[in-house]
Design a protein around this nucleic acid. Structure first.
Lengths: 200, 200
DNA sequence: AATAATAGTGAACGAACGTACACTCGGAGG
DNA sequence: CCTCCGAGTGTACGTTCGTTCACTATTATT
């Protein structure tokens, strides 16, 4: 059982998390042992258990940190920009930029989906927050007559889905470049916007 | 090293694969050991290695089997239906039905993405085949003036992305029902089709 | 019926795993 | 200056893992 968070040395905790990221990328999450993390962190074997319950607990901490980073970036952007149509396209650019600027965490995020129930719950929370953002944005557009009156939720889902899928294709499969990824997300949104816009 | 495939007992091989599916669902892929598969299959320990190289080899066999099933269902459907617009919407229904009729394999497919490089290569092959189908279908639509002249590939990607994402949401997270999943895929396609159709 | 070939078997092995626990030691409190 | 708390340490243990290989059972060949 870990000791109280206030008793934990913050730098030591960060060192553990950083080492974990390096190893998760290098060897993959499942091929990384707690021992590996301990060795790279240059801490005592038992010390690990003062900070985390197990390996999964480390992953959860990393994902929560990442989710906070993305959500706060979007929130910042939302305070700068209020135009509904500009928001619709540019929010995605903001999100994809956070992903590309945190390549290692993006790769871990892309790889661990479906790995275990607690991890899934953590991911689902994060994704649901994003979908909610997107849905609200589209509903604003409908309310003010910019978009046609269509079900917003499937569209919001599709937006997250393609972001996630193309991120996976870039960061895991290396099948497309960073630029191709962003270009495809934008191109898709332009076509989609054509289906959304109230032009009649 | 496994023995020649012609020398393998087909029923025994199938029994091994079926046991693996049961365990992968029950305990998850990573928490299932080769020992578990051997015990449930009621075969000798060494016999396993006459059939598969390792656990990953079992997974690859399962995924290939599943990919074949989906691709052949779509191919069958393509021989029945030639109308471009009907194809565009209904192909997805065919695909989603194969997924729902093979829930266990769908769950495994949803869960193992990103797990390891060889598995990813296997998945990528399968997904690329699907994307190629979708792209060709959209390009037909453009060629014959049914769809506007837009880049087909990002659309094809988005279609697979939302299918995969909603499948994950149904079969892994249990956050939506089977019916909601299909309804959302269809609803999304209707909006998307509005952006695609050449109505001017 | 005897022999050869080979698939099937499972005890055994070494490596790697998570983590418990007895121990060290710096620094705060008296 | 002494005491003592608790974070840090790392050896050592029991478990489980994947894999091997000498052996047995079964089938095919002559």
């Amino acid at each position: 059982m870990p000791i109280a968070k206030t008793k934990q040395n913050k730098e030591r905790r960060q060192k553990l998390l950083e080492s974990a990221v390096i190893l998760f990328i290098e060897k993959g999450y499942f091929n990384t042992s707690i021992r590996d993390i301990i060795v790279l962190s240059e801490i005592g074997t038992g010390t690990f258990y003062n900070y985390f319950i197990d390996k999964e607990d480390v992953l959860k901490a990393l994902l929560e940190e990442f989710a906070d980073k993305i959500i706060s970036s979007i929130k910042d952007y939302y305070q700068q920009e209020t135009d509904i149509y500009v928001r619709f396209v540019e929010t995605k650019r903001v999100t994809m930029e956070v992903f590309t600027q945190n390549e290692a965490l993006s790769e871990i995020y892309s790889r661990v989906a479906g790995a275990s129930t607690p991890i899934d719950q953590c991911l689902q929370q994060f994704e649901d927050r994003l979908i909610e953002f997107y849905t609200r944005n589209i509903e604003y557009g409908i309310k003010f007559g910019v978009f046609r009156n269509i079900p917003a939720s499937p569209i919001a889902h599709s937006i997250l889905a393609i972001e996630k899928f193309l991120l996976y294709k870039w960061v895991v499969l290396k099948a497309i470049t960073k630029e191709e990824m962003i270009e495809m997300v934008v191109s898709f949104h332009e076509t989609l916007a054509n289906g959304l816009l109230n032009t009649r």
